[in-house]
Design a protein around this nucleic acid. Structure first.
Lengths: 218, 218
DNA sequence: CCCCAGCTAATACTTTGGTAGTAGAGACCA
DNA sequence: TGGTCTCTACTACCAAAGTATTAGCTGGGG
């Protein structure tokens, strides 16, 4: 593959020092460009939705909003960015949950810089990047559970929120939705706000697009 | 994209001569491989179900079983093969019926061989292949019935309007669109107003939904 | 019993979206 | 040359969307 265009990356991590390190590392790699940094989940989600990076490096352990929550919101949202977890924890549960939730990679912060860059390139090519220990960990998890159900992806929109999402995707205004459901417009606004938050989106337009591309999935 | 693997094709046509011609043509194209030939509908259906080709070339006018019947059976069955009609008839009715029945292309036998191969590659990439005359024919059919569809879809959209429509469908605000296109927000508003008028819609939400459901069509 | 989640509703405020009218610059065509 | 089209840009105004906060009501579970 010819990497003519640099990978555009957003980092979501609450450690400034680590972000600095990644910055420096990226400057040595012409095929990797860090276009944004966020030190919290919500901020990161907003940034991803705005910048639409090729890749998101996401820390697992953050105050305020857990990295896994951020991951699910990113993956359920309009974003098509690939997401790689970058963390110190190789707890089996976290690894499994992250991958189930759609993570495109799971790397540990103790990796050598050159290895890390190599892994990021692999992700850019569509592969799943795992630290060696993580791979082992994953194998064990697989053995442990054999064959069981797949696809949790609960996506906890309430009935009412789903209903309103459908109306949004049909181009209806809050006022019209309110009238057809016989509730107040202010109530519709509340539901809209909640479903936007849950989907990790910012406007009803994104919600409408999400709804038509993921219909049947909510 | 990645043409590493050749397209596996089955031909269903009752003219041995034409089949021979396609064979020779395929031998000159390393990315296209004919893995089976059938000279009747029932035989073709059986063959498709067994070989599961990437692509089926299907004649419309065959004795015993009409090509459209074969098409509907293939599309209603377990097969995931793409089906391209290859025929001498460009009767409007046939074209419309075939496409409505799920055909992935409609080509005429008088095409130049190189053109034909090109169209088949387009189908492999997920596009719909039409002979030029067929496209015209289809356009006429649309005009004829366009009254009730709420979709004027004359597609008068200018380049700029198309561009902005795409940004809308990605959930971007007028302000963001203005910034990325390096024009004023007021100008974006003008374009939005025009494209809404042309599409017969009232809000950008409807436009976004229209765009994602009719992508490639504008 | 209380607590919690979901639905309802309101107020007040800021931002964004959409309409209307005007107008200049550049391209193209007759 | 004049006419038309596209893109650009502005002003002004009103409608719609979204945020923030508070709060009453309900049903189910610990």
């Amino acid at each position: 593959m010819n990497a003519t265009v640099a990978q555009r990356i957003v980092i979501i991590d609450d450690h400034p020092l680590l972000r600095k390190g990644l910055q420096q590392l990226a400057e040595l790699s012409p095929d990797i460009e860090i276009i944004g940094e966020a030190d919290s989940g919500p901020e990161g989600i907003a940034m991803v939705n705005e910048l639409k990076p090729d890749l998101v490096l996401l820390d697992l352990n953050m105050p305020e909003m857990n990295g896994l929550e951020v991951l699910t919101q990113l993956k359920s949202g309009a974003s098509t960015s690939r997401v790689v977890m970058l963390t110190v924890s190789n707890a089996e549960e976290d690894v499994v949950t992250a991958l189930r939730s759609g993570a495109d990679g799971y790397l540990l912060k103790d990796m050598k810089p050159t290895q890390l860059m190599q892994k990021l390139r692999e992700v850019a090519e569509g592969r799943v990047a795992l630290s060696p220990n993580v791979a082992e960990c994953l194998a064990r998890a697989m053995q442990a559970e054999g064959a069981r159900d797949t696809a949790p992806s609960t996506l906890d929109l309430t009935d009412r929120e789903c209903e309103i999402l459908i109306h949004i995707s049909e181009g209806e205004s809050n006022k019209v939705i309110a009238r057809t459901l016989s509730i107040a417009e202010s109530t519709v606004k509340v539901h809209v706000k909640h479903l936007l938050k849950k989907l990790g989106l910012k406007t009803r337009v994104e919600a409408a697009v999400w709804a038509v591309t993921h219909k049947d999935q909510f």
